[in-house]
Amino acid sequence: MNSATTQSHNGSTRPVQQVFTSRSGGVSLAPYESFNLGDHVGDDPEAVAKNRARLARVLGLDPSQLVWMEQIHSNTVKVVVDKQQGPVPAADAIVTTTPGLALCVLVADCVPVLLCDVEAKVVAAVHAGRMGARNGIVRATVEKMRELGAKPQSIHALLGPAASGRHYEVPRAMAEDVEKHLPGSITTTVKGTTGVDVRAGLVRQLLSLGINAIDADPRCTIEDSTFFSYRREGTTGRQAGVIWLTEQ
């Protein structure tokens, strides 16, 4: 499947599956072409439903196992224990210990963060945009995982494709504000202007929380047309990060 890449852990037992999708392989028409998974961006709801069904089918899941969020750029974390009838309301991170629940995060420049503790059997999907990251959404998610038995030294973090500091240009005052709350994020763009690298700031934050097993996809959604980018296109679709505990 050219619209998703997967990563698993712990060899053949594969207790955790993780996926990042791209924009190809779906049925949505311009400007959402083609594998748009966002149902809040103006795309044909039937096309989105078909894309989500295809995602589930390729992953070997039922669409009812996919858990989506009503993302609002907050620092709100919610725990889910069962299948949902609709998106988890007003949340930017979801955590579960229930096998078979596939936690989904939608992005188009924001950082999709997938967290797992295989030993404690806790996983999380995080929508870490500039404001959410600045306001501590990842820190709050790690804390919630710890409440459910996870340990920082056992947590693995996977950060997906997102806007890079090379192209994420913001006013200096905004960048300095983000840097104050998320050290390591302020940067200079290829134009020589002030920018932010949310992914870099999150890596530093994760390390400060005692999480050392970190993988970060370096691809920039703004410059790579393989992905949807709100900054580049304005009206566009959303790709997803998905993580779930297997039944094994």
Rank of each mutant, 00 (worst) to 15 (best):
K78H: 09
D92N: 12
A128S: 06
G100R: 11
K151V: 05
V80Q: 07
D177I: 05
I137S: 04
L207Y: 00
H127E: 08
L66P: 11
I214F: 03
Q17F: 05
L159N: 04
N135P: 09
W244C: 05
Q65C: 09
K78I: 03
W68P: 15
V81S: 12
I214Y: 08
K78V: 05
R23H: 10
V126D: 03
M174C: 12
G237L: 08
L37W: 11
G195S: 01
A4V: 15
D117H: 06
N135T: 07
P99H: 01
H73F: 10
G195Q: 00
N75H: 13
V58Y: 05
L158A: 07
A240S: 10
G184K: 03
V126L: 09
E119T: 14
R199N: 01
S34H: 14
G241S: 03
K180I: 04
H40M: 08
V48F: 08
H181D: 09
S74E: 06
E233P: 02
P218K: 06
A173I: 11
T246I: 10
D62W: 03
V118L: 12
I222R: 00
V48R: 02
V95Y: 04
G100F: 00
T76G: 03
P63E: 08
P31D: 13
V95H: 02
H73L: 13
R54M: 14
L159P: 00
R166T: 07
E70Y: 14
R238K: 14
V48D: 05
G42R: 08
V242A: 04
T236Q: 04
T194H: 15
K144M: 13
V16K: 02
M131P: 01
H127G: 07
V111N: 08
I137C: 01
C220R: 01
G11Q: 12
T193R: 15
N51Y: 10
M174K: 12
